[in-house]
């Protein structure tokens, strides 16, 4: 009896060790290639200078400056608008599309799936050009809206604050819905199809089985996509640069876009860029922590 217990203990110790062996290569790579530069970045955020060789101690002045910097505060506000509107719409849409495409009786599934995935494979250069020309004053969208009688005169989408933000959100939804759908689809494969059939026999409506079967069972995947989308949106860069160039009057600029400018376009002030980046880390970290607390429970 005692012996068996001891063996079990040592065995669980062995499993624990095996676990560490499994995750060590990945953890080491991350430590060296991600954490080391991050720690450097953290240190530089308290310094000032144009090159690493002449960095001087600057205390928390970079952080104070950040909160007095109107452009950065604006970019912070813009980024949160994108985050609050775009992430929920996109994830819900992806979930609905995935559960529709998981239907066994549906025809042309392969086509639908590939078509919906396509946008995220499309290179940024082309999709920026397309979106800009679609939403230009004489573009496709204005033409349609005017023909339908919704608009009397063309609306300058990209040169108007609300319009510019709306186009960015639309572009994000368009580009990343299919991407998130992929994870939901692959997650759904682990749910037995018979569960749905049983529910159907029990008289559950499709809506009910969506909320009572699909959503709970996909919870780990939903958590993953929520954290990834939060991170992606708070570090949003491409759309701000390529669709609106942050305009008009910085009303659509994002934090990462501004950090890029302060690093490469403006007079080099790497310490300040680092300080702003650390703020992003804190923001995403906090949001992810909340999401983990809510969603990462093993039943």
């Amino acid at each position: 009896m005692e012996k068996a217990k001891a063996r079990k203990l040592s065995q669980s110790k062995r499993y624990n060790l095996t676990g560490w062996v499994f995750l060590t290569p990945a953890a080491l790579l991350i430590a060296v290639f991600s954490f080391y530069p991050m720690i450097k970045c953290f240190i530089y955020s308290f310094q000032k200078g144009s090159t690493f060789a002449n960095m001087q101690w600057y205390g928390i002045n970079n952080y104070i400056r950040m909160f007095q910097d109107k452009v950065f505060m604006k970019s912070l506000g813009n980024t949160f608008i994108y985050f609050l509107i775009q992430v929920p719409i996109m994830l819900i849409l992806a979930l609905i599309l995935a559960s529709m495409l998981n239907n066994k009786d549906l025809k042309f599934k392969g086509f639908f799936r590939t078509a919906i995935f396509l946008p995220c494979a499309t290179t940024l250069v082309s999709y920026a050009i397309i979106f800009r020309s679609l939403f230009s004053t004489d573009g496709f969208v204005n033409t349609i809206l005017m023909k339908l009688g919704i608009l009397d005169a063309p609306f300058a989408f990209l040169t108007n604050t609300t319009g510019a933000r709306a186009v960015i959100i639309l572009a994000l939804v368009w580009r990343w819905t299919g991407y998130n759908m992929v994870f939901y689809l692959s997650g759904l494969q682990n749910i037995e199809y018979s569960v749905y059939e049983a529910a159907k026999i029990d008289g559950a409506s499709p809506l009910q089985s969506f909320f009572h079967i699909t959503v709970p069972l996909l919870k780990p995947t939903i958590l993953l996509t929520a954290i990834m989308s939060t991170n992606g949106t708070l570090q949003l860069f491409d759309e701000s640069v390529n669709l609106t160039n942050g305009g008009p009057a910085n009303s659509s600029i994002t934090m990462s876009h501004y950090i890029y400018d302060t690093t490469f376009k403006y007079v080099p002030n790497f310490g300040y860029s680092c300080a702003m980046s650390i703020l992003i880390l804190i923001l995403v970290g906090t949001l992810a922590f909340i999401q983990m607390k809510v969603g990462d429970k093993r039943d």
Binding site: Y36, P37, M38, M255, S277, I278, V284, A288
Partner: peptide
Amino acid sequence: FKDGLMSVILLAMMVPFVATMIPL
């Protein structure tokens, strides 16, 4: 510990690449 480490690892993606690129 492993759950904790997972959370720490997630931090690795939360700093914009622009800021880590130069030290890297």
